[in-house]
Design a protein around this nucleic acid. Sequence first.
DNA 1: AGTTTTGTGTCATTTGTGTGACAGCTTCTC
DNA 2: GAGAAGCTGTCACACAAATGACACAAAACT
Lengths: 226, 226
Amino acid sequence: MSDLILVVDDDEDIRNLLTFNLQREGYQTIEADDGAIALELVRSHHPSLILLDIMLPRVDGLAVCRELGKDRNTDSIPIIMLTARGDEVDRIVGFELGADDYVVKPFNTRELLLRVKAMLRRRGQSENEDPLLRCHSVCLDPQAHKVTINDKPVELTALQFCLLKDLMSNPGCVRSREELLSSVWDYQFEGYDRTVDTHIKRLRARLGDAADIIETVRGIGYRCKG
Amino acid sequence: MSDLILVVDDDEDIRNLLTFNLQREGYQTIEADDGAIALELVRSHHPSLILLDIMLPRVDGLAVCRELGKDRNTDSIPIIMLTARGDEVDRIVGFELGADDYVVKPFNTRELLLRVKAMLRRRGQSENEDPLLRCHSVCLDPQAHKVTINDKPVELTALQFCLLKDLMSNPGCVRSREELLSSVWDYQFEGYDRTVDTHIKRLRARLGDAADIIETVRGIGYRCKG
DNA sequence: AGTTTTGTGTCATTTGTGTGACAGCTTCTC
DNA sequence: GAGAAGCTGTCACACAAATGACACAAAACT
């Protein structure tokens, strides 16, 4: 479902910083601390994107870049280079190498995350397509963060919205409480099953007459009508 | 929609570097590797800005500058000169030439981009044909940098204007604080979420009765009525 | 019946937002 | 220059809303 990102840097602190932030944004991550391992991991895991430091032991970042560019299986994987000095950049980017973007250290985390997001969206590999979701009289607009029933707006809290969006994104599919907890709530929320029930109740209350688009599947979970 | 920038340099690597960065910032680019071609392209494409190296084959940068300055169709196009040595600058800045700014090689990419941005903003030629943005009683004119409510002018600071423009450019869409920070503030600004709140407050205060076109989406961000 | 599962109401706690205050800056004015 | 005025980013506080946990009622299944 979510994108896998390979983080390559020999500095463990930087890897931790990056993976922490990426995971918080819902990405999966793998790590390498030198270029040779990076190449192996790319071939075995096919990440959706690579964050690549230039200065690496054994095989350096530029070489990794060049190597990946030669292989048809890997040449379309977007690479964001991490570089220590601004003037290194001038020699690197856009040239014979396959780097698609770069960020100069010390980088701003928010900027980096935005670039990652933008890159994945551009490649159309992200789940970032936001069509309107419809189910009977209910219509959910992810961009505007709005829900309407028969074109009449309904007020939902952020959590209710996410919950409904999850259900409507999987019409006809049963979603177990565990699945909902892990997808709607934070990645490591020590949740209590019944919390889901409570929110389903609140969501149904807000949906009023349209509450029946959410079906209870006894013993399993909940389902949005398909 | 976006500005077209002509990049003139005989060094292909530098052209690549510049076009890469400009495109990343959303500009369109065309390239020339000598002065004669540059002049042709200016006349055929009417770019919004020119990045011009001084040392060029055939017709050099200074001559291009002078040439463009003579023609009423081209004399208002801003030119940023790229120059290798500091002492060349003295001749440029004398300004019998039409150069509006200059950057010394090896230049810092971010600095150059900022100058480009600033120049286009100053000339008000940015975002060719910006339509008026309207939302209920509020009308925002990006070119004139003016906002009116029921045709009565409202004083906004630059930041408030940018913020409102961002919101009104995405009517009905929720903009998260992160998105606003990265789009309204500088990319590198290590912002603090609540700063956005403060500016929203100030913006609403200026908007008076029309403040309700900016909706708070709790837990998500802000949205301009669609 | 009994057992399991789900729905609902309540409540303490957490979280998010609006707001005023303030210091550091820049810009303007004299 | 000096001083005033305005803009900006940060913070602390108060208030309102949302959340998560729990108890108990209701429903579904055996």
